[in-house]
């Protein structure tokens, strides 16, 4: 079955959604992501949606869920690369996605993740520098 690859980049995971999402694919992505977060103990997830040409309420909800799941597993999530037309449509649709952090591109997303992780490390120092 077709799956969306999840790459490990340093202490972060990178999910790049390149295909038009259908519902089953979205469900399996959530399974894969949570499993990989636990297995790699990654500190953050970058979800690149620059190739997505639409985000409906289902995919929007999936993005929200992925961010919340990452949060529950002690990681930060950032969605990057949303296209202008997609952003306008989501707002008109009535979804705010306020729970999802965003950045313009992968570079800026990476920098944001780093600063978020550094901030949370300084707050609880003990479980961060264990390597």
């Amino acid at each position: 079955m077709e799956r969306i690859p999840i790459l490990k980049v340093g202490e972060f995971l990178l999910v790049s959604i390149q295909v038009d999402m259908h519902d089953r694919l979205a469900m399996s992505l959530q399974d894969d992501l949570t499993a990989k977060l636990v297995a790699t103990r990654a500190k953050g997830v970058l979800i690149d949606i620059s190739s997505l040409d639409m985000v409906d309420s289902f995919i929007g909800r999936m993005l929200g869920h992925m961010a919340a799941m990452a949060g529950a597993l002690g990681a930060k999530a950032v969605v990057v690369g949303m296209q202008p037309a997609v952003a306008i449509t989501i707002v008109e649709l009535g979804m705010a996605l306020t729970e999802v952090r965003t950045a313009l591109n992968v570079d800026k997303g990476m920098a944001l993740l780093q600063s978020l992780v550094a901030k949370s490390c300084s707050m609880d120092n003990h479980d961060c520098h264990e390597k």
Binding site: M82, Q83, P84, A87, A96, T102, L104, G109
Partner: peptide
């Protein structure tokens, strides 16, 4: 809201 969704 739309700008925020794009990360700005």
């Amino acid at each position: 809201a739309a700008a925020r969704l794009m990360g700005a």
